[in-house]
């Protein structure tokens, strides 16, 4: 596979962390070995951060917006917030 313009793959996870056994160690690293440029986005992380892992995977950790501890109420608040934003546009 040509290294000049390698195909780019973006793995997006929500419940799996960056160093997940399957998504990272098996899938992402296998793709890297095959010449892909691998990006790994973790949407529901404990912290916001980005960089490149030792193995060469570009990662983006995105902290989930949490207004209150209850998942359901949090979801509803976010929906209401988005709805209000759309109404204001």
């Amino acid at each position: 596979m040509s290294q000049l313009n390698p195909p780019v793959i973006c793995i997006i996870a929500d419940k799996h962390d960056l160093y997940d056994d399957r998504a990272y160690w098996k899938q992402a690293l296998s793709l890297l070995e095959e010449g892909f440029l691998v990006h790994y986005i973790v949407v529901n992380s404990d912290e916001s951060n980005q960089g490149v892992t030792k193995e060469g995977v570009s990662f983006y950790l995105i902290k989930r917006k949490q207004y209150i501890p209850s998942i359901i109420l949090n979801y509803l608040i976010k929906k209401a917030f988005l709805f209000a934003m759309n109404m204001m546009k």
């Binding site: 195909p7 997006i12 929500d14 990006h39």
Partner: peptide, 18 residues
Amino acid sequence: MCRKINADIFQIVDLRIN
């Protein structure tokens, strides 16, 4: 974020991303 990466392939691992 995804717009910036502009990947050729997206692999979605979890349900909620749907």
